[in-house]
């Protein structure tokens, strides 16, 4: 369980969402969402498909815009389009459902692109770090490969290494295992569990209940654009506080 920030006097959260609202045309996809993620904390967003958890995740680094409310990272509201936004994004990592590795670049070049171009790291330094990260996700021998030559699980591990290369303060995981064959899900979750154990701040959208139970500090349950409850995983899974959450868990566990 999280040692995290709880011990210190009350500290402002690293990421704060305040009364966030968003519409897609007529449908109200985020309704008055409030959420805090403290430094070193792992928060897992759970909920049925279409409950708004992916959208929420994508709003944090402004891949989606919000209609009202406030998203604050380390005391600074996230800026609108422009260089300021790019600077913020460089500090917030993101891992996508469909990996999104750059198809025209080798694994190594995928990882070094942003450190070299965005942070101005010398190439040798960026490559040394990239190899180190590849080793960490167990793919040291794939540095020269192109993404299309890798399995889905391998691609997602490279994508995680690519994100880590920017030394992010927070990593967003948007259903990182949903596009994977079942036998590859484990290898990705393993890397994510290690990251969590090392104290990385993570906001994770997933359907992997095992991961949530094992690695999360808190679970936030979303339904129809609202966060209905937030609780430590053992509390949420054993004694959910809402009927909606009970229904959701019942359906998941029946599978």
């Amino acid at each position: 369980m999280a040692s995290g920030p709880g011990s210190a006097a009350r500290v402002d959260a690293l990421l704060q969402l305040r009364r966030v609202n968003k519409h897609y045309g007529q449908s109200h996809v985020l309704r008055d969402v409030d959420l805090d993620v403290h430094a070193g904390e792992v928060v897992v967003l759970l909920g049925a498909s279409g409950s708004g958890k992916s959208t929420l995740c994508r709003c944090v680094n402004r891949l989606e815009t919000i209609d009202s409310g406030e998203i604050v990272l380390d005391g600074t509201p996230i800026p609108a389009e422009g260089r300021e936004l790019a600077r913020l994004r460089a500090q917030v990592g993101m891992v996508f459902q469909s990996f999104n590795l750059f198809g025209h670049r080798t694994v190594l070049d995928n990882i070094t692109l942003a450190p070299v171009r965005v942070r101005g790291l010398p190439r040798e330094q960026a490559e040394a770090r990239a190899l180190e990260l590849l080793d960490r996700v167990g793919l040291a021998d794939k540095a020269a490969a192109h993404p299309a030559q890798l399995s889905g699980g391998q691609q997602q591990r490279v994508a995680i290494a690519r994100t880590l290369a920017m030394d992010p303060r927070l990593i967003l995981f948007d259903e990182p295992t949903s596009a994977l064959d079942p036998e590859m899900i484990g290898e990705v979750l393993e890397v994510m569990t290690e990251l969590a154990a090392e104290g990385m701040t993570m906001l994770v959208v997933t359907h992997e209940m095992g991961f949530a139970r094992r690695a999360a500090d808190r679970v936030a349950f979303m339904d129809q654009g609202r966060i209905l409850e937030t609780a430590p995983p053992d509390v949420f899974f054993d004694r959910p506080g809402t009927d909606r959450a009970r229904d959701f868990l019942a359906r998941i566990l029946r599978h």
């Binding site: 600077r87 460089a90 993101m94 469909s98 690519r162 920017m166």
Partner: peptide
């Protein structure tokens, strides 16, 4: 070019021109 490629680049902090 798939949208995800652009999103991944933007998420890494690359500017529009980069």
């Amino acid at each position: 070019v798939p949208r995800g490629q652009i999103e991944a680049a933007r998420a890494l902090g690359l500017t529009f021109t980069q």
